[in-house]
Design a protein around this nucleic acid. Sequence first.
RNA 1: UGGGGCGUAGCCAAGUGGUAAGGCAGCGGAUUUUGAUUCCGCCAUCCCCUGGUUCGAAUCCAGGCGCCCCAGCCA
Length: 565
Amino acid sequence: MADGETAVAEAGRDFIRDIVHADLDAGRHSSAVTRFPPEPNGYLHIGHAKSICLNFGIAGEFGGRCHLRFDDTNPTREEQEFIDAIERDVRWLGFDWGKHLYYASDYFERLYEWAEHLIRTGHAYVDDQSQEAMRIARGTLTEPGKNSPFRDRPVEENLDLFRRMRAGEFPNGARVLRAKIDMSSGNINLRDPVLYRILHAHHPRTGTKWSIYPSYDYAHGQSDAIEGITHSICTLEFEDHRPLYEWFLEHLPVPSKPRQYEFARLNLTYTVLSKRVLTTLVRDGHVKAWDDPRMPTIAGLRRRGVPPSAIRDFVKRIGVAKANSVVDANVLDFSIREVLNKTAQRRMAVLRPLKVVIENYPEGQSEELEAVNHPDDPAAGTRKVPFGRELFIEQEDFMENPPKKFFRLSPGAEVRLRYAYFITCREAVKNATGEVVELRCTYDPATKGGNAPDGRKVKATIHWVSAAHAKTAEVRLYNPLFARPDPTAGENFTDDINPQSLEVLNSVKIEPALAADPSAEPVQFERLGYFAPDPDSTPAHPVFNRTVGLRDTYAKVAASEAKGR
RNA sequence: UGGGGCGUAGCCAAGUGGUAAGGCAGCGGAUUUUGAUUCCGCCAUCCCCUGGUUCGAAUCCAGGCGCCCCAGCCA
């Protein structure tokens, strides 16, 4: 499969690529250098995939490089587990940062020196105000803020205090270093933003070396400048941080001048892409783990069986723009089917078994029939499928009193068993409660392989599995994690959780070839959908995840029929 | 008159003065040993609104309206 390969140049046109193109044409840069800057405080999700494909994609298309840089400026919420998971997920998506793996913490010393530079040039000061006092003095959206009483401290005093902050002389929250910009700015980010705060915390990379940590605003742009990033791409909410981003670059002796551009983050129907919510879902056990197949995380999608190329295809389809939008989850499903239809081999499995006895098939006899592995790819070859007197078919492929447009089995009806024979239903056997528990059928020996010599047609072909040869498996069916297309990401998001997001089937009957195949490749269960083995699988107990179902136009027909009655 | 951004079909999204790309969804039809796939066809007289400029405007100008983001020592 091509998924293991590094993804290259999956171009598209968008305003950011247009900018990069123009910059190269104008000779402002000789190549595009971008970065993907996750904070290691959670797992990557499909929204991050959009950013990853954008950043790595542009670097690949414009002969540059993309750095993986961990934005690890807040040790109170960052963990090594997340660093490892992020690397694994970016790599799995098909991207390679080569030797360009960086951490904002790599630059702590330099950032510190630059902070002293700002103090010396009168552009930063140590503020002793309480957090509460600072909040009040910041003003509101419509009223200007007030200058801090510490704003005009002498340079030497600022330097002394700042050094002592670094030395760990003060408790958390006692003081901060602030940029001296404009407390009356309409842009609140410019009202003397905090550059450093005191945090006596253990950092995954620097341990206890530091007791002060730089803020995102102070660290990000300078990290970009140090790495020679040409185009620093982020999401819309950072748009009004851009003036601050540029302010630092103007007031510091940075080695390069990156430019920041913003695009709209991804939103998906029936999905919440908020790290806070995803973290809570895991922490409170609404899902099993970060890689639960119901999660929109890269790890969850991977476990569900989604190929990385499908995620890349999805990202290409949705485009990049500045308008807030919500993408229909159908687009993702479409991309998944698009890839899997071409790559997944076909097998037969019966999710909800209904026993069928072929009355005119000799008892104790069995035979092997040939089935193709992929209808559009002869190179995929064929396999043998055992057939016998007792079979299992799908419960929903039989109806005792079928509506007009139901073409499958019903008393007296004839259908084709895929790759096998035509069978006709003679009788439905019921139990004491009236449930159909077994079908008595006859087969036409002349239709072996699925074609009638007399040319007669059947209106349906159904899948089946030989009872004597079938293995039993567990199948996990997934439905959207949220019941509403527009679930809230607010405090009460649990109200919108779909109670039917997981359905476990324990007596799924699978053909022998499926149980024997040790590969972890996704397969198509014919007429049902795409399924991938779960890591919980053992040879004695196979477990499959439904990645995505097949398009089901009959479901629509049935629904409209039902409505019409 | 706090600042910043956005508004093209049900959902994404091209288009940047010359008379509305493409995709998803939907709807018809053909093919089909998966009611799958594939293949054909349909789907915005109109681009948030109102004026204006122009031979000509989704694109330019003016004025409105709507939605999103910002008041963390989070990112």
